[in-house]
Design a protein around this nucleic acid. Structure first.
Lengths: 146, 146
DNA sequence: GGACATTAGTTAGCTTTGCGTACTATCATG
DNA sequence: CATGATAGTACGCAAAGCTAACTAATGTCC
């Protein structure tokens, strides 16, 4: 990647914003029936992280607690996660993915493949490597607190 | 970029979905007051493209026409774009960015800078190059029709 | 040990932004 | 001129974010 002319931050920022927004919109349209992107992301986090509290999950997803409350309610209603009250601290409840939830996650992943992975597969290895790097950088950009 | 171990499409897809979604969420949170991301994107497109019809704009943004109708109504109400009926075809109206709209676009861009470009500036040139490449690839991924 | 602050989570209500269906107005074509 | 296609709108629904205000539980401090 030597010899690349350096990129102007402001323009890159503008392009990123547009590209990212459009990408997210498309992802919503292509998401599997029965699982919205928000639920998908939350479920994914719980599975990856192990048992979490609602507050931890909200912080991790960078979302306000009331927003997460609703997402969790929806997941519980669908039987995707269980709430278990903490025996020591009566304020907190722990969230865990059910087998049902794990199944849905797998199914959704397969469904995403139909759309996204197919296209990813059509990219050159170089492009894939660029995207792979970008995914990490994007997350850092999105997550910072400042 | 030789020597990079090749990336598994399915996993890259999963990471991309999560990263993209989170990034978009963050962009919404950081968007300038007085301009929502959707309006921002639409305005940006009209300015970049020159005069467009509502249908063209909807297609370009990959959004249904009714959705775009509402976005346009909001922009017209705020004085950001003007509607001019086509003199030959009574069904179509042409959209143009007003000076007001251009001003807002500039302001929003500066505002985005406060958040995004600052972080972009902190990246290494290599990371910036990766993101630059990724922005284009992401758009291609999001835009395809298949 | 009781008053007060802090923390986890919920409830309620608002906004944005997507969708689909169904409609109107205009144009094109046989 | 009737019939069909096309541009755009109206309307209602759902997802997903926010803030403000609340409840319940826990901590703290005199």
């Amino acid at each position: 990647m030597r010899g690349t002319t350096d990129v102007a931050p402001a323009e890159l920022a503008a392009r990123l914003r547009v590209a990212g927004w459009r990408f997210a919109r498309r992802m919503r349209r292509e998401s599997a029936p029965g699982i919205t992107p928000t639920v998908h992301a939350a479920l994914y986090s719980i599975e990856a992280h192990g048992p979490m509290t609602a507050g931890q999950l909200a912080a991790h997803e960078h979302v306000q607690k009331p927003t997460m409350t609703r997402t969790i309610a929806s997941m519980v209603e669908q039987g995707l996660v269980t709430r278990t009250p903490d025996p020591l601290d009566g304020r907190v409840t722990w969230l865990q993915v059910t087998p049902e939830g794990r199944r849905l996650l797998l199914r959704a992943r397969r469904r995403t493949d139909e759309f996204l992975a197919k296209r990813v597969r059509d990219l050159s290895p170089e492009d894939r490597a660029a995207l792979d790097a970008a995914a990490g950088i994007l997350e850092r950009l999105a997550d910072g607190d400042r």
